[in-house]
Amino acid sequence: MRHTILLAAALSALAFGAVAQAEDPFADAVEMRHGLMLQMATDMGKLGSMAKGEAVYDAAIASRSAENVAAIASVLSMDQFPAGSEYKAAADSFALPAIWATPDDFMAKITDLNTAAAALKVASATDVEGLKAGMGQVGAACSACHKAYRQPED
């Protein structure tokens, strides 16, 4: 008897979960922007291990990673941030409502990232010192946006 109740509860939870998912209009956008952000983090990681001396500096690998970051930066736009997909309103979202209160400033932060990523492309192809300086600039562009527009996780 107890098992039946538990099973019924589990099934209805599953069903409810499925419905909730199907009805979440922002799931795709949130997943998309998370994917883009994570890919940038992965490429910055390759550059960072060279900067920290954990990997040998390789101009070709460094350039490719820098190019990836620049390519993703060029794709970022309000398209991945539809109105309403904010922290607490959309599942898994840590995007702050300030994005939609000051969209021009948010877009300016994207432009800043593009500028820094373009500089990184050039700098990372020269030497480790150039790479470090370029990473500092990109890091500042990432965190300038996170500071204003992203809810820190618990």
């Binding site: 983090a41 990681g45 960072g48 890091g139 996170h146």
Partner: peptide
Amino acid sequence: QYLTTGFTPEYDSVGGHMA
């Protein structure tokens, strides 16, 4: 590295007041 560039070891980037 975190205190210099804001990158965590996973290369997530710092936010909130810590930025």
